[in-house]
Amino acid sequence: MNDRAKNSDDHLLAANVVRAVDVKKVFKLGGEEVHALRGCTLSIKRGEYISIMGPSGSGKTTFFNMIGGLDKPNYGQVFIDEVDIASLDAFELAWLRCHKIGYIFQTFNLIPVQSALENVMLPMLFSGMPEADAQDKAADLLQKVGLGHRLLNKPTQLSGGQQQRVAVARALANDPAILLADEPTGNLDLKTGEEIIEMLSGLKDDFGVTVITATHDHKMLSVSDRVIYLVDGRIDRIQRREDLRITVGTIEEGH
């Protein structure tokens, strides 16, 4: 009974995996103040697939970095798993990035000197996992993303799509709560991009991770639970999946 109560309590606490409260960010560019974010509030639930869209200069990247624990706001708070990231020191932040967040980049960002297997092992070694265990788990993850036959290949010996698959496996290494993907299809062709999107959406269901992407890619919209549109440093509108189909339809008709 006690246990159950505790569990449901934990569950409630964990319901919002990311919470941004009135986040503001000002950059100084050549003596001039640039308001990248003018107060954004957003809660993201565990297991959601969120796309952040917006033209360049809209603060999309800044907001994305903020909720990924890569940047700190000037004003307001960002909670990841209900922990205010501003309260963390360098060691705790590194731990958070290592254990709670999996990063996927537009430019794949594999370590060029390491094999696919070693790349996926790296975050596990950082987390203190013994090498043999890390190796087994990395091989398993690469198998899951369909690269079981290319474990020992270096990134340069892999295609773009394959590199991004390795990056996805690496992002999953420490069973993160959040997958943070910055334009994950930006450097891929249409078909490969679709495969990656499909994979990310599948991971959401299989691993229960929360996927947050910053994107221009309209293919991304159909798998998103919510799409956040940023304009001029503010959240302009949020579209839910139910409303999305229609919108995508009109966009396609318009072309």
């Binding site: 890569l70 590194a94 731990w95 990063y103 960002n109 370590i111 950082f126």
Partner: peptide, 14 residues
């Protein structure tokens, strides 16, 4: 720079 940044994202300490 990108490699170092990536390593830090993965949890590397200074």
């Amino acid at each position: 720079f990108r490699e170092i940044g990536t390593m830090k994202c993965l949890g590397a300490l200074d």
